[in-house]
Design a protein around this nucleic acid. Structure first.
Lengths: 343, 343
DNA sequence: GGCGTGGATGTTTGCGTTCACAATTTCGCC
DNA sequence: GGCGAAATTGTGAACGCAAACATCCACGCC
C-alpha cells in the first residue's frame, strides 16, 4: 500500500525498471526466470515489482510472442452431467499448468453452433482448443480449421483421424450388461441415449456385443434422451412387461425415471427388476435403492486431454499429429439395484 | 480457400489495407463500424478481409485500449447444481453481448483460494469480474482489490456494500414452509445446507420466520452439506420420529437422501411425511414421488448480473457503484411430495 | 599481459492495433 | 466560382512486452 499514485495506467515494466535501477529488459528476464541474472538484481527487481504492485500485461506478451496461455473449450451449455463434469475437471487441470480456460458454450451441438464457437475462440487467439463433441454432427465443424491450432476432441467421432480422448463406452456397457447376466438374468434390456451421440452408440454396442457373445437374442432397443423424463416414459412400457427383469440404462438419470415408473407399477427394484446405470452421479448412491452404475473417470479424461494438448502446443502441432488417442476405462460401481434373478 | 500462402504470421491490418488499397486506419474504421467511411471503401475492405481470412488480433487491441472483452468468473469447481447452473447461464448471456468468459474455478471457497483466482483474472486484464461467493469467508478476498475493476457478486454477503445479485432465499424458504403449513402440518422440520453459506442461512431464516409468525415453536435445526448423503444421514433420525410429518430441505439432493431414508424406514411420502425441496434440479420431477420444490431462476440471475456488470464497464466503475442490488424471486413448483396432514 | 570466454546488463526493434491529429476531397451556398 | 464546413482518408505515434543484437566486465589461460 506504500505507493498509490493514481495514474491512469497501471505500472509497466519501465516503471519497475526505473525503480529498481535497471533496464526494462532485465525486468523481463527476472519475470521469465532467465538464468544469467545475478541474485542481487533479481532481488532488487522483485522488490520493485512488489512495491509497485506490478502485473505483467498478458496482452502485450501475447502480442509479441504470438501466443497466449489460454485454452478454449467448446462445450454444451446444458447441465448434462457428463459434459459439465468434463469441463470443470479440465479447467482444474489446465489451471494447474498455468493455463486459463475460456468457455464457449453452445446451445446445441449442430455444426453451425460449434463452428461459431470455434471461430470465437480463434478470434481470441487461444493457444489450443478442446471440443467436447459427442455427436456426429460436430465433426464437419472441425474439418476446416487452420492446421496449426492444437486441438483435442473429447468423446468425438472415433472414425475421424483427430486427436481424441474418449471414455471407453463399450467396455463400460459390457461390464454393466455382464453384471446383470452374471446375476442370472435371461436377458438385459437397454434404454439408450440419443442415437446421434457417440456415447450412446458405444453403450448400445457394448450391450449388444455382450448379449450376442452370450448367445442371447437382443431385445428391442428403447431410446431415451438422457433425461429422467425419457427414463420414466420408457419405464411405463417396461413396467408392463413381466419378463423384463434386468435393464441397463444409458445414464443414471434415465435410471431414476425408470425407478419411478417401476415403483408406480408396483414392481420392486431389485426384487423384480435389476438396474444398472451409467455416470455415477453423486446422488446415485442415494436413489431408492442405491444404484449400481458405471463410473467414468472424468479427472483422468481431463488429464489425458491436457497432456495431448500440451504436446501439440509445445512441439508445434506437426510434431504429434497423426491422431493420437487416449481411452479411459470406466469402472463398475456395485450398489443395491442388482439382485439375482428370481430372488 | 483462395489464398493459402503459408506465412509465419497470420495476416494483419496492413495486409488487408494493402490489398484493399487503403490505409490501415481505414481498415480499423471499417472494423469498428465508424461512421464516416464511404460505402464503397467499406465494401473493398470487407472483401479484402474475407479474401485473406483476416482476424483482428484481440491482444493488440487490448494492448492499446487497455481493456479486453473478457469477463472473469470465479466459481466453485464442484458440480453443485446451483453454482454450475449460474455459470452456464451467465456464460450464455455474456456471449450474447459479445463477451468471452474466462472461468477460474476454485476448489474451496476460502479466502486464499478466491484471492488467487481473482489475481489470476486480474493478470489477464479482464474487463470485469463475477464472483459466485456464497460463503462468508469469501468476503475478505474481495475487500482489497483495485477500485477500478467492475465486479458483481452472486449470492454474496448481503451485509457488504458490494454490487450484488442474489436469489431471494428467504422468500423461497417462506413459500416452501408456508406450503407445508397450509397443508395442515403442525410444524415443519428443516435440513439446512452448510451454515457458512449465505444461501443456507437465508433458507433457514425464511423457515424460522414463517414458523414464528404462525406462532409455532421451531423444531431443532438439522444441518446438512447439500449432499444427498447428508439428507440420508439426517433422514435416519427424522424417520424415527413419528411426529415428523413435514420437512423442508435446503436443496433437492438432500431431499433425495431423505426420501431414501424415509423409504427404508417404511414411512411413505407424502402419505406419512411431506417434503419440499429447493433448486428444482431437472430430475426432481422424477423422484419417487415427484418433488415439490422451489425453483430459482438462474437465467434471470445471469441477466441481472450481466446488466449490473455492463453498467460498470461502460460508465466506469465510479458511475454506478454504491452497491446496486438485484434480488431474484424464486418460484414454488408444486408436485406430489406434499399431502394434507394426516391423510 | 593479451586474448578469449562467458556471465551480466543495456539498446533497439517490432508485434498489430487504436488514437490524435493532419491532409485531402466533396459539397452546399451565396 | 470560390470559400468554408463536413465528410473521408491518411500519417505518425504509442501501448507493454520479448527477441535479437550489442556492450561491458571479470576471470582464467597460455
Amino acid at each position: 500500500m506504500s505507493v498509490s499514485v493514481k495514474r491512469g495506467r497501471p505500472p509497466g515494466m519501465m516503471d519497475v525498471a526505473r525503480l529498481a535501477g535497471v533496464s526494462h529488459q532485465t525486468v523481463s528476464r527476472v519475470l521469465n526466470e532467465h538464468k544469467n541474472v545475478s541474485e542481487q538484481t533479481r532481488l532488487k527487481v522483485r522488490a520493485a515489482i512488489a512495491e509497485l504492485g506490478y502485473r505483467p500485461d498478458r496482452a502485450a506478451r501475447a502480442l509479441v510472442t504470438g501466443t497466449s496461455r489460454v485454452i478454449g473449450v467448446v462445450a454444451q451449455n446444458s447441465s448434462l452431467f457428463g459434459p459439465a463434469s468434463m469441463l470443470t475437471a479440465f479447467e482444474e487441470a489446465a489451471q494447474a499448468k498455468g493455463f486459463a480456460v475460456n468457455v464457449g458454450s453452445v446451445r446445441s451441438l449442430d455444426e453451425r453452433s460449434i463452428s461459431e464457437a470455434v471461430e470465437r475462440h480463434l478470434d481470441q487467439r487461444v493457444a489450443g482448443l478442446v471440443v467436447i463433441a459427442p455427436v456426429a454432427s460436430a465433426g464437419p465443424a472441425l474439418e476446416h480449421l487452420p492446421a496449426d491450432v492444437p486441438i483435442v476432441t473429447i468423446d468425438g467421432d472415433p472414425e475421424r483421424s483427430s486427436t481424441l480422448v474418449t471414455v471407453d463406452q463399450v467396455a463400460g456397457a459390457r461390464a454393466a450388461t455382464k453384471r446383470l447376466l452374471d446375476a442370472g438374468h435371461r436377458t438385459v434390456w437397454h434404454i439408450s441415449g440419443p442415437s446421434d451421440w457417440f456415447d450412446a452408440a458405444g453403450r448400445v454396442r457394448g450391450w449388444e456385443e455382450t448379449l450376442t457373445e452370450a448367445g442371447i437374442e437382443i431385445p428391442p432397443l428403447l431410446t431415451g434422451d438422457w433425461s429422467a423424463a425419457s427414463g420414466y416414459r420408457n419405464g411405463q412400457l417396461l413396467a408392463r412387461l413381466p419378463d423384463v427383469t434386468a435393464v441397463f440404462t444409458a445414464n443414471d438419470h434415465i435410471a431414476l425415471g425408470l425407478l419411478r415408473a417401476l415403483n408406480e407399477h408396483g414392481r420392486r427394484v431389485p426384487g423384480d427388476v435389476s438396474i444398472v446405470g451409467f455416470d455415477d452421479v453423486p446422488e446415485a448412491a442415494y436413489f431408492t435403492p442405491p444404484l449400481t452404475t458405471v463410473r467414468p473417470d472424468f479427472a483422468a479424461v481431463a488429464t489425458a486431454t491436457l497432456e495431448l494438448l500440451m504436446a501439440q502446443v509445445e512441439q508445434g502441432p506437426a510434431g504429434v499429429e497423426a491422431g493420437a488417442r487416449r481411452t479411459i476405462a470406466p469402472e463398475l460401481i456395485e450398489r443395491d439395484s442388482v439382485a439375482r434373478a428370481g430372488s
